[in-house]
Design a binder for these strands. Structure first.
Length: 281
DNA sequence: CACCATGTTCCTTG
DNA sequence: CCAAGGAACATGGT
């Protein structure tokens, strides 16, 4: 479930549940997700530590911790990879098949579950330093986007996935933003006009903001066997779950704007979805 | 069996 | 320095 909006929703969900809770015991089932932290060091740091807050940067979750028996603070960095989930369950709940890390919090347990183990839960917060600006803050301006895009001849779709340009856009919202902006995913980044950059800037913010609003309407009470982390697809507008994404995973379906069949293509080894009529070069 | 998958990093080649 | 392509990580769905 992991692009910026999904991570943002998760962070808002976890923050009040975790704030003030102290870790009683640490279980590491899959040491690779701690990399480069070792399991002994991870356990040493977290046993007895207290959650102070949870924030987000790009697709990363930042858990602010207080060390046991001291005012010293440190960061725990989380990333969901492709399939990761982080949630609280009652202590009695059995762990899911691919539980990577479990933190005992007394009556509850924090579970990091990840079938593909592409995600991270680590003491190394250095990846955050390489991220570009947050797209939903004032740091992200049309001028900045224009300057960054000017430096590359890569297709604009591929550039949008570059986390050092803007943090948090993934394969789904890259396609969605370009559709909203009416821009071809193939267009060389440095060949967008100023008005097109402005449109793209607005489309990025709109797509992400709407996704967050949409996800906020869905209860996030994760259970080991009843995952509803799939809020890419759902919105409860009018009391019904309706499809929200306009192009992603909709190859051959009619464009919602012009009825032309949508297309799928491969760019940088990833699928891109677009409308060949509304998104001309 | 084939192919696909929301992410990131590393490597090679040009 | 940049770009493009591929592979790797590991598992599950169709």
């Amino acid at each position: 479930m992991p692009e910026l909006p999904e991570v943002e929703i998760l962070v808002r969900h976890l923050r009040p549940l975790l704030a003030g809770r102290t870790i009683r015991e640490v279980h590491v089932q899959r040491p690779a997700v701690l990399d480069p932290t070792t399991a002994p060091r991870f356990k040493m740091a977290l046993r007895g530590a207290t959650f102070l807050g949870v924030t987000r940067r790009g697709k990363y979750l930042l858990f602010e911790m207080r060390a046991p028996g001291s005012p010293r603070r440190f960061m725990l960095l989380g990333h969901l990879g492709m399939t990761g989930r982080m949630y609280l369950a009652r202590k009695s709940e059995p762990w899911p098949k691919h539980a990577a890390v479990v933190l005992e919090l007394g009556a509850n347990q924090f579970i990091y579950d990840d079938p593909r183990y592409f995600g991270r839960l680590t003491l190394d917060a250095s990846p955050v330093a390489k991220l570009g600006p947050e797209p939903l803050t004032a740091q992200f301006t049309p001028g900045l986007l224009a300057r960054e895009l000017k430096r590359s001849r890569q297709p604009v779709k591929v550039k949008l996935l570059d986390q050092s340009l803007v943090a948090g856009i993934g394969n789904i919202y890259a396609s969605e933003a370009l559709f909203r902006a009416g821009l071809s995913p193939r267009r060389a980044a440095n060949r967008l006009s100023a008005p097109q950059v402005e449109k793209l800037w607005q489309a990025i913010r709109k797509v992400l903001t709407e996704a967050i609003d949409c996800g906020s309407t869905i209860p996030l009470n994760f259970q080991p066997h009843r995952s509803n982390g799939l809020f890419y697809y759902g919105s409860t507008q009018g009391g019904f779950y309706t499809e929200r994404l306009r192009v992603y995973d909709r190859a051959a379906q009619p464009c919602g704007r012009c009825q032309t069949p949508l297309k799928r293509m491969i760019q940088a080894a990833r699928s891109t979805f677009y409308c060949p009529h509304c998104q001309k070069k």
